[in-house]
Amino acid sequence: MIDMYLLYFLMIFAAVSAVGVVTFRNIFHGAICLGAMLLGIAGIYLIMGAEFVFAVQVLVYVGGILTLILFAIMLTSKIADRSILQANEQKTVSFLISAITLFVLIYAIVKTPFTTVQGPFIVVDTARIGKSLFLNNILPFEVISILLLAALVGAIVLARKDIKK
């Protein structure tokens, strides 16, 4: 019962923060709202019994990606200035695309026959996630790690100064 109310609270919290991300004029405040939204979603995962997804969500998104975004904002000069425009010149195009995406998503949600499960949530334990990741899905896992490695090397090549001079 309490879980149910907590779930609704977290959902509303995440939605409100998501609106905050795009409406705040100060980009730093927007980034903080992003953090709040990610945490709200992490909380939803925790209540639904997906502990592993919760921990990874917090560790990767809040601890990693959000920190990176905040760092980028702090290192970019005058990005939190009020004079910076919030929207660019392609308002109509982006409005159309987001409207279509919204329509498709709503259509998909309405059309999907969701099965309702009675009783407690089915908890997938970490051991099973690990087994499926390293036995059945080892190829995609390795492909992703090579991709990440390539991105890492590329970033270093782009960022480093030419030492030979």
């Binding site: 990874v56 917090v58 560790l59």
Partner: peptide
């Protein structure tokens, strides 16, 4: 470990 990274923020 994941909770302590929140302190970074």
């Amino acid at each position: 470990f994941s909770i302590t990274t929140l302190g970074v923020m």
